[in-house]
C-alpha cells in the first residue's frame, strides 16, 4: 500500500502514519520542516514502513502544493491513499484581535486545503481511483461562540468534502472527512480536556478503519458523533447562553 500524507510529523497525522508503517506501507511525507520530516521518516521506517520519502510542502505557500503532490506520487508509483491533517487552529479571541491571523487561518484551512484537495483529486483520477482523507473538525458542525471563525473554516471544508465525494464517486475516488473532537496532542497540552477526550492512537484506529471502508464521514473518538448530533439539535436560545 502506498500512502501520501501531509501532516505526518505531528499528533494524529503521526499516529496514522505509524499505523500504515506497521502495515509495511510505502509513505510519502509532505511537510515544511526538513529536519522534522527526516526524523519522522526515520521513525516510520523503524516501525516497519517499506519507504518514507520526504517532500517539501507548505500550505502557506500554495505554489508548493502541486509540485509536492507530483513528487510524492511519482516517488511512490501509485498512491492508494492521500491524507491531509495539517492546518491551523487559533482561539476566537486571538482571531478577533488579529485580522491578519484570521486571514491566514482561512487561507490555510480553506483555500490552501481546497487547492491541495483539487490537486490530489487529479492525482487519484489519473491513476483510476483511490482515497482522499482530510481532517476537518467537529467545530464545523454547529455555530458556537468559541469557534466562530475556526469553525466556519471547517464547516466550509466539510461541505466541500461532501460535495467532491459525490462528484468523484464515478471516478473511483472515495473521500473521507474526519471530524475529530478534543484529542490529547502537543497542541492541547495544558488545555482542560472536555469529557470524552481522545488520544491520537485511538483516533488513528478509527480513521484507518474509515479509510479501509471508504466511510464518507467519521467522528473520532466516535462518541463525538453522538455529541454533535445532540449539539446540533440544541435551540438557539440555549446556544446564546452556552459557553462551549
Amino acid at each position: 500500500m502506498n500512502v501520501l500524507i501531509l501532516g505526518a510529523t505531528r499528533g494524529m497525522g503521526r499516529a496514522l502514519a505509524r499505523k500504515y508503517a506497521a502495515r509495511g506501507a510505502a509513505l510519502a511525507l509532505l511537510g515544511r520542516d526538513a529536519e522534522d520530516l527526516q526524523r519522522t521518516a526515520a521513525d516510520l521506517v523503524a516501525r516497519g514502513a517499506s519507504a518514507a520519502v520526504q517532500v517539501a510542502c507548505d500550505l502557506e505557500k500554495t505554489e508548493t502544493i502541486l509540485p509536492a503532490l507530483h513528487t510524492g506520487s511519482t516517488a511512490l508509483g501509485r498512491v492508494d491513499v492521500i491524507v491531509l491533517t495539517a492546518g491551523i487552529y487559533a482561539s476566537q479571541e486571538s482571531l478577533e484581535a488579529s485580522p491578519d491571523l484570521t486571514e491566514k487561518l482561512l487561507r490555510v484551512n480553506l483555500i490552501a486545503t481546497i487547492r491541495f484537495c483539487e490537486a490530489a483529486r487529479e492525482v487519484l483520477a489519473v491513476q483510476g481511483g483511490g482515497t482522499l482523507c482530510v481532517f476537518s473538525s467537529v467545530a464545523g458542525d454547529r455555530g458556537r461562540k468559541p469557534v466562530a471563525i475556526y469553525g466556519a473554516s471547517k464547516a466550509a471544508l466539510s461541505h466541500y468534502l461532501e460535495s467532491i465525494g459525490y462528484r468523484d464517486h464515478e471516478r473511483g475516488i472515495k473521500v473521507v472527512c474526519v471530524k475529530p473532537g478534543f484529542v490529547h496532542t502537543d497542541m492541547t497540552a495544558g488545555l482542560k480536556p472536555p469529557p470524552f477526550a481522545g488520544d491520537p492512537d485511538a483516533v488513528a484506529d478509527v480513521v484507518i478503519r474509515a479509510i479501509d471502508r471508504g466511510t464518507p464521514v467519521v467522528y473520532a473518538p466516535r462518541i463525538w458523533g453522538l455529541m454533535m448530533a445532540l449539539i446540533k439539535r440544541l435551540p438557539r436560545a440555549f446556544m446564546r447562553r452556552a459557553k462551549f
Binding site: R10, R32, D36, T85, Y89, S137, M187
Partner: peptide, 22 residues
C-alpha cells in the same frame, strides 16, 4: 531552532487557547 510549525487545528473543540493549570 526550526521555524515554529503551524498548530494542528483538528484537536480542539473548545475555545480555550492558552495553556491552563492542570
Amino acid at each position: 531552532e526550526p521555524d515554529p510549525v503551524p498548530r494542528d487545528p483538528t484537536s480542539a473543540i473548545a475555545g480555550a487557547a492558552s495553556p491552563a493549570w492542570t
